[in-house]
Design a protein around this nucleic acid. Structure first.
Lengths: 341, 341
DNA sequence: GTGAAAGCGCTAACAA
DNA sequence: TTGTTAGCGCTTTCAC
C-alpha cells in the first residue's frame, strides 16, 4: 500500500508528467482546468504531500522562518508578553504558509553553537530576533551574513540600516504621564525598568519629556530604577515615599502591582492618596484591586506584523530598511483616579 | 568573496574529494587524522555550514522536531507552564543538535491545513504533542501516519499503545490532601479544573482517593468544578462557604490565588481559619500572601525528557510504547498552616 | 582511507 | 499547455 509517493508517482497515476503535477501543486497557471482537476483528485485520494527537503533544495527556499530569543531575553520568556507575541507570530506564519522554528538560547554555549548555523543559509528563509538589551552578538552576525532578518524591539545602540519593528514606548509613557498631569498631579514619580533595556529607557524618556513639556520640575529623587519584577516595584516604594509623590508612573504592570502592594502596606489608598499607572496591560493588571490604569501594547498585532514585514524583506530585500513603530493605547481604569472625578 | 560553499568547494580547497569532506563533517571514522585536520581547518576558515535541505534529502532525516500545541491547548499558552515546558524542550533540542518547529493552532482552519502536512513525511523527524483534552483529531491522525510522536500529557481516552510522558497528577493530589488530613482537617473541599481535562480529572481522583483511604466522607457539596482561571477560583468560594470547609485543595495555583482572595474578602484568615493548597508551583504562588503551599511539577525536566524519549522513539521505533509518569513534590509554605504547628 | 558515481524528490528553464 | 532535462548539495554504496 504505502508505495512511496513522489511527483513522479502522482504523475503516473494521473497520466501526466512530473512537471505538470509540480505546477498543480504550486498553483501555477498554464494548466488545463480538466488536467488540474484530475491531478488534484489523485493528490486528494493518495494524501500526497510534497517532500519539503527536495523542494527546498531545488527552489532554494525552505518556507521556514526562525524566531530567535537570545540569552538576554530568554529569562523573560515566562513573561506573558512573549506568549502573546509568539501567538501572533505563529498565527501569521500559519496564514502565510510558513513554518516557524524556535531558537531559545539558554546558555552561552547554545548561542555559540547555533548562531553560525542560523546566520548561514541553514534551513531558514529569514529570522525575527527578539532584542531589547544591548550587547547581544547576534545582530552583528546577522548583518554580516546574507540572512534576511528583522529585529522585534530595538536596542539603544543600533545601526540605522537595521530593520525593526517596535512599540512606541516613548509616546506611550508620555501619554500616561500627561494624563496624570491633567488630573492635577504635580509630584509624579517614576519606577523605571532595567537600565540598558531600550523599552525601559524609552519609557523613562517619555516620562521626562512629559514633565518638561508641562513645566514640571524633574526631581531625581522621584525616579527609581527597577528591574521589571514585582519585587522590584515593591522595593522601590520605600525609596520614593520620603519624597512624597502624589502619583507614580511605573514602567511595567508587574512592577506596578508590587508598587500598589507596598503602598497599601504603607497605609496609602490608591488612587485617592496616590495615583498609579502601569505599562503593558497584562491580565493581572485587569484583575488587581484597584484595577490598573495602564499603557496597552498591541502585542498580537505586533507579532503578526513582524512576520509580514519579514516576508516582505525576504522577497524584496532589506533596502531600504523597514522601521515601524506601533502606537500604544492608554487604558484608563481605577488606579489613576480618573474615575473619581 | 562569497563564492558558494559546498562540500565540493571545501574539498577542492583541502585537496580531497567531496566524499571525504562529508565524512569529516559527519564525524565518521576511516579518515586519516591528518586529512581530517586539514579539512576541519578549511571549514573553520570558510565558516562552511552544510546545506540542511540537501542533507535532509539525501539522508532522509531533517534534524527537526515539531512541537504541536493543538487548539484545545493553545488557549493555555499564556500559562507559565508552557513557557517553562518550551524552555525545557528547546534546551534539550539544543543539546541534542535538533531544531524545533513550533505549531500553534489558533483556528480550526490552521488545524485542517497543517495536520496533514505534519503527519506526512514533511520536514519533521518526529513530533511532541501537547495534549490534555479529549477530542483532538491529531492523535488519531498521527497514529495512522508513520510519523514518530510522543504525547506530553495524557487524555482520558487514549489507546494503550500510544507513547506518552506525563506528571503523576493523581499521586500529587493525593499527597496534598493527605497532608491536610494529617494536619487535622476533616472537611476538605476541592476546586477542580475543567472537566474533560485529564490533569483535572486525575487531581480530583487523587483527592477522592485520599479521603477514602483516610475514611473521610466524600461530600459532593465540597467539590466545585473550576476552570483553571483565577476568576474561577474566586467564584468557587461562594459555593463552598455555606458548607463550612476547613481546608481547600485547589487544582491549580492560579485558581488557588483566586480562592485565597475570595476567602480574605469573606473575612476568613488563611491558614488559621481555613487551609489552602494549590497545584503547579508557579511564581505567583511563591509571592502571594500567604505563600502558597502547592504541588510542584518538574516541568523543565519534563520538557527535557520529552525530547529524549522522542529521539529514542525516532531511532528505535515506538514498540514498545514509552509511558512515563513523573513524580510531583509537595512544597510546604504558609497557606496550609503546617508552619503554625 | 579515499574517490567516483548514483541517487534523494523537487523546481525551473527550455523544447516541443 | 505539456514534457524533457538539468541541476539543487548532500549521503552512501561500491570500487580502487
Amino acid at each position: 500500500m504505502a508505495k512511496k509517493l513522489t511527483l513522479e508517482e502522482i504523475g503516473k497515476l494521473a497520466g501526466v508528467s512530473r512537471s505538470t503535477v509540480s505546477r498543480v501543486v504550486n498553483g501555477q497557471p498554464d494548466v488545463k482546468e480538466e488536467v488540474r482537476e484530475r491531478v488534484l483528485e489523485v493528490i486528494r485520494e493518495t494524501g500526497f504531500v510534497p517532500n519539503p527537503a527536495a523542494r527546498s533544495l531545488a527552489a532554494q527556499r525552505s518556507g521556514i522562518l526562525g524566531l530567535v530569543i537570545p540569552r538576554s531575553v530568554a529569562t523573560f520568556f515566562g513573561d506573558p508578553y512573549f506568549s502573546r507575541l509568539t501567538q501572533g507570530i505563529t498565527q501569521a506564519c500559519n496564514e502565510q504558509g510558513y513554518m516557524l522554528s524556535l531558537f531559545l538560547f539558554n546558555t552561552k554555549k547554545d548561542e555559540e553553537m547555533l548562531l553560525p548555523r542560523i546566520a548561514q543559509h541553514s534551513f531558514l528563509d529569514g529570522v525575527i530576533v527578539q532584542a531589547t538589551t544591548d550587547g547581544d552578538p547576534i545582530i552583528p552576525q546577522l548583518q554580516k551574513s546574507a540572512m534576511p532578518f528583522l529585529v522585534a524591539g530595538r536596542l539603544n545602540q543600533m545601526d540605522d540600516d537595521v530593520s525593526y519593528i517596535d512599540v512606541d514606548n516613548l509616546s506611550g509613557a508620555y501619554n500616561a504621564v500627561e494624563h496624570l498631569i491633567k488630573l492635577g498631579h504635580e509630584r509624579i514619580a517614576h519606577v523605571s525598568g532595567r537600565l540598558g533595556n531600550r523599552p525601559a529607557a524609552d519609557r523613562k524618556l517619555g516620562y521626562e519629556q512629559a514633565l518638561r513639556d508641562h513645566h514640571l520640575p524633574l526631581d531625581e529623587n522621584l525616579i527609581v530604577n527597577g528591574d521589571f519584577s514585582e519585587e522590584g516595584g515593591y522595593a522601590s516604594v520605600q525609596d520614593l515615599l520620603p519624597h512624597k509623590p502624589d502619583a507614580i508612573f511605573v514602567a511595567s504592570d508587574m512592577m506596578a502591582l508590587g508598587v500598589v502592594h507596598a503602598l497599601k502596606e504603607a497605609g496609602l489608598l490608591v488612587p485617592s492618596d496616590i495615583a498609579v499607572i502601569g505599562f503593558d496591560d497584562l491580565l493581572p493588571a485587569r484583575q488587581s484591586t484597584p484595577k490598573l490604569t495602564t499603557v496597552k501594547q498591541p502585542i498580537l498585532r505586533f507579532g503578526v506584523s513582524a512576520v509580514e514585514v519579514l516576508i516582505d524583506i525576504i522577497e524584496k530585500g532589506s533596502i531600504p530598511p523597514r522601521q515601524t513603530l506601533y502606537d500604544t493605547e492608554l487604558i484608563i481604569r481605577d488606579s489613576c483616579g480618573a474615575s473619581l472625578s
